[in-house]
Design a protein around this nucleic acid. Sequence first.
DNA 1: ACAAGCACTGAAAACGTTTTCACAAAACGT
DNA 2: ACGTTTTGTGAAAACGTTTTCAGTGCTTGT
Lengths: 327, 327
Amino acid sequence: MTVGIRDVARAAGVSTATVSRALGKGPVSEALRAQVDAAVRATGYRPNLSARRLRSQTTQTVGLIVADIRNPFFTAVSRAVEDAAYGAGMRVILCNTDEDAAREALYLRLMEEERVSGVIFAPTRTTAEALGPGDLPFPTVFIDRAGPPGLHDSIVLDNAGASAALVDHLVARGYSRIGGLFGSTSSTARERRDGYAAAMARHGLEAQARAVLPQAEAAEMAAAAWFEGPERPDALVLSNGQMLMGAFRAARGRGLRIPSDLALAGFDNEPWTDLVDPGLTVIEQPVAEIGTQAMRLLFERIANPDQPVRKVTLSGRAIFRGSTGAA
Amino acid sequence: MTVGIRDVARAAGVSTATVSRALGKGPVSEALRAQVDAAVRATGYRPNLSARRLRSQTTQTVGLIVADIRNPFFTAVSRAVEDAAYGAGMRVILCNTDEDAAREALYLRLMEEERVSGVIFAPTRTTAEALGPGDLPFPTVFIDRAGPPGLHDSIVLDNAGASAALVDHLVARGYSRIGGLFGSTSSTARERRDGYAAAMARHGLEAQARAVLPQAEAAEMAAAAWFEGPERPDALVLSNGQMLMGAFRAARGRGLRIPSDLALAGFDNEPWTDLVDPGLTVIEQPVAEIGTQAMRLLFERIANPDQPVRKVTLSGRAIFRGSTGAA
DNA sequence: ACAAGCACTGAAAACGTTTTCACAAAACGT
DNA sequence: ACGTTTTGTGAAAACGTTTTCAGTGCTTGT
């Protein structure tokens, strides 16, 4: 029924070995290569990738495991990863964990079964801390979030520095009751919280940090409760773009005026953040670069498994807008 | 080196056939099944999916081909598709075509080589019109956009009706120089344009439609040029959420007041559309349902290849906001 | 008690490629 | 002109599973 390499071989009058070599990069004379090409076209042959992978023991596939593709940060990173992968003739298996360690374990097992060439992984803190030396039997690059210390390549943001920059800016604009609402699941959120706390201490201010699931709804509820409570902050730092959106919603719902009643600052320069009124002060992350660099690190690790572990730290870019009383 | 099914068989003291059956759903006695489970645990065996696919001739994989995952519409649909797929033990191969017919052809070929069980596809108009009866050698469900007429299952929006609803609303609010800026690449954009034109005609108004690439930047430039020109509209209908964002940017850049100088209405209830001031009137699409229904149609088609072609038409929900002078 | 069926198991074939191996012919160095 | 390499080719093995086929031992119905 379906046409295989032996049909092509028969049509071209050569052996299957020659067809395979003509399609790949083996040494084949020009004459035979032309015959094979013609036979491929005539038969409409499509190589069976499962068979190829089984025999060649290389899948040309990478896994990409993130919390939720609907978070625009991961959307953008994923797109960059996919472009780089397809550009290099590789496929991507995308998995959404929803910050759930059980699903992370499930997908890591799937990656083993797929015999992926490598994995790009943004883990929860739980998983990152539980992972030991031999637990990932494939090259792995951690992105956005730290993996187990010292074991794998990674590419992260200078989270503490970025948080501190936001706090410094808020203090300079005259805010003092600066609260921080951070994600509860990632090392990144924790680093942002620590950077916030350190900067607050440096300014002699009392840090007020809370943690929730890093999603818009959870942040909206937490922020709303905070605004109702006895210690209403005059500024709020949010740990990512989704939470920033939640906080903005909560402020609007309470009728708070920004930036006079409340300043807002956060992470991720999502396209809408300069569309609202006032625009929101954010730390822009180099999303495309994170994706392409992650693939680069992974390729190099695959090519050279024993090279020393590398950690790439990128800087965010602060964009000051009206939500913190800036221009 | 790597542990295979024969190692498990040896460890369990049974044949590979029995291991395979114990792991699958074959008939195996309880005693042996327990031995096999123990051996699997002891050896840390991970089945090789490439080998399984090759032998069993079923890949349990579906392709998902969309224009750009960064478009929140496709992001949400993709997430729903992936959830449904993984929930049924299938994998997803995601491809971004950037509205490019050449890349569509490339990825369709890839789907053949992967021997996917089926494909979910949002094609450009070019490709949809070029596709003949035998061109897709796998079950295919078209989403968001029409495929070749009558050949495949599909799930689309009532685009013309939704457009007309927007026009009717704008007319009721007193607007009359209502322009339409639509995507140039999809049947969907064309249907929205036609629905717009028909509604305008019904109201005795002159339709003014333009078409550009369905992206924020292109729409912003086109809208800006339109606002500068001699025939500035007093309302604009946009063909998707990205273009709506572009038009909103252009209006703000020109200092136009919404809704007094200009009304804005479009498609896709993206999270930011009710965050800007004024909120934007949109047609909300049932994104999650589109994704899950697409997978359902695909599963049913795979299970029963010869059943009649089905076309599911979903209705959008109009959400009237300040950008059209609504409450 | 015996034929017929049933439930379970193992040996071996099969899936569609790539790769190894052996070898013939051509090219090369002296 | 003669070994020695190089180049190109085909036959067959190999990749790691699932599935077919042919039992074997039990149960069942009569």
